[in-house]
Simulated scan of single mutants.
Amino acid sequence: MYKHILIATDGSELARKGLEHGLSLAKPLHAKVTVLTVSEPLRQEMASAARLGGIEDPVGRYDQQIDAIMKERFSYIERRGAEHGVPVDLVHEINESPAEAIASFAKLNGCDLIVMSSHGRRGVQKVLLGSQTSEVLVKTSVPVLVIR
């Protein structure tokens, strides 16, 4: 059925539910699993504000923080994969549009299922907060399993 599952995660508790579903699905299917995390780049206005606040190298500092977060996140994902008996490939991308990065990665790497979580917000909350899941659904032709 599915041969290459892409699990998109931002490391949140909700995203961990998506991770668990994806790993549980992959095991009996003997599917390859790639876990993708997308971080947004440091915006110029934020770097400027940090410099004004006395931080000499805000980009370097941001990169160090992202590296530390990813090391911890990937360690957790590897442990969960091992506990499920599923090897995982770990990928981190920097992109202004996480949804675009997810859809593009799935297409370029032959993923036949995307697993991701959503809060299920609607109406004004969705407009104000945005929804990466909704954007992925619009941008991809790959099936998407949405976990709440």
Rank of each mutant, 00 (worst) to 15 (best):
V124I: 13
E100D: 14
D63W: 10
M116R: 05
P87G: 08
G18Y: 00
V124L: 13
A101G: 09
A103W: 05
T133Q: 08
A99V: 03
Q44T: 10
V88L: 01
M46F: 11
L129A: 12
G22N: 02
H119T: 11
L113I: 14
P143T: 01
A8H: 01
E135H: 10
V38Y: 03
F105W: 01
D10F: 02
E45V: 06
L145W: 01
R79P: 02
K27T: 12
V88A: 00
V142N: 06
N95C: 09
L42K: 13
V38L: 07
A103I: 03
I5P: 00
Y2K: 05
Q44L: 14
G53L: 14
K107M: 10
T9M: 04
E93D: 15
T34V: 12
E20G: 08
A15M: 05
L145S: 07
H4Y: 07
L6W: 01
T34G: 08
P98K: 00
E45H: 11
K17D: 08
Q64V: 15
A47W: 03
R80D: 09
K27W: 12
C111H: 05
V127T: 13
R148S: 09
V136W: 06
I55R: 10
I94A: 08
I7D: 02
E72W: 07
D89I: 11
L52G: 07
A101C: 13
L42D: 05
N95F: 07
T133G: 07
Y76F: 15
P98M: 00
L14E: 01
L128A: 09
Q65F: 13
H21N: 06
L23F: 01
T133W: 03
A103Y: 02
D57R: 08
L42T: 09
Q132Y: 10
E56P: 08
E13C: 10
S104L: 11
L90T: 06
E40A: 12
P98T: 01
A31N: 06
R16N: 13
S39G: 11
V144L: 10
D89G: 11
L128Q: 06
V59D: 09
E100V: 04
L19S: 03
S12I: 07
G53P: 09
L36F: 01
G85R: 09
V91Y: 09
D112R: 03
Y2G: 03
K27Y: 11
L137V: 08
R122V: 10
A15N: 02
A50Y: 06
I69H: 09
V127C: 04
I69Y: 12
L52M: 14
L6M: 07
L29Q: 13
